[in-house]
């Protein structure tokens, strides 16, 4: 391993906290892989070696797990993971066209990163926001009801170094490494940030209120 001493010390401290959440050591592996992505921006050879030491497995065993999951990146990832949902419903509602235009605009395809390292593009599978189709995700925050124009604006903002704001979620999208640290199970104090409730989420509740309907007491 070639981590600097202070980096390694912090990693070991974080890993100890992660290991403490589980009764069996190996269960810590998925959050540990998110943790090394928060330091290296991908699952690096060093990161694999670090995880292997922590969970007492071989590097080969850790690699076998890491390569199963799409969120673990085998090459340095862009600062922003931009995913356009092209599963059936989003694709039909416009996701295919959004993908075509975003990919053309960025000049990269699926699982490729722009030369400046800003954006890694992904054709997403269903992200459980079908009532907001077509949907895009940036570093795993929701960008709902997209159009090509809105999607390209988000992409341009990222490429030109401006903050981007999700439609449901935090006040601004955090970079890939920061988000990876949250996914390792470390709170970042942003849970109360909010963009207001989305209309589809409460549409049924509104109908019920208008009609005076409620589940009996």
């Amino acid at each position: 391993m070639t981590y600097a001493a202070d980096t390694l010390a912090q990693l070991e401290k974080d890993a100890a906290e992660i290991l403490g959440r589980y009764p069996v050591r190996r269960s810590a592996l998925l959050p540990l892989l998110h943790l090394v992505q928060s330091v290296d921006g991908y699952v690096s050879p060093d990161g694999i070696a670090f995880c292997a030491t922590q969970v007492e497995l071989t590097s080969a065993e850790v690699s076998a797990v890491a390569t199963f999951y799409t969120q673990y990146k085998r090459r340095p990832n862009g600062e922003y993971q931009v995913g356009v949902c092209t599963n059936t419903l989003c694709a039909i509602m416009g996701g295919d066209e959004i993908w075509r235009r975003v990919s053309e605009h960025c000049g990269v395809g699926h699982d490729e990163t722009t030369p400046d390292g800003k954006i890694t593009l992904e054709r997403l599978e269903c992200n459980a926001a079908c009532d907001y189709a077509p949907v895009m995700m940036v570093n795993w925050e929701f960008f709902d009801n997209m159009t090509p124009d809105r999607a390209l604006r988000v992409v341009d903002d990222i490429l030109e170094g401006r903050d981007v704001v999700p439609t449901r979620g935090s006040a601004k999208v955090a970079p890939f490494k920061e988000v990876s640290r949250v996914l390792a199970g470390f709170e970042d104090g942003r849970a109360d940030e909010d963009q207001g409730i989305g209309e589809p989420t409460v549409v049924g509740l509104k109908v019920a209120r208008e009609q005076g309907w409620e589940a009996s007491k």
Binding site: L30, H34, Y69, Q71, L124, N127, A128, M137, N139, W140, E141, F142, P166, R168, G169, S170, V179, V182, L183, G185, E187, D188, R190, A191, D192
Partner: peptide, 14 residues
């Protein structure tokens, strides 16, 4: 929780 919904994870942890 699926990993692709970071704000949901924040809310759950909180």
């Amino acid at each position: 929780l699926r990993g692709e919904v970071v704000h949901v994870y924040r809310r759950l942890m909180q």
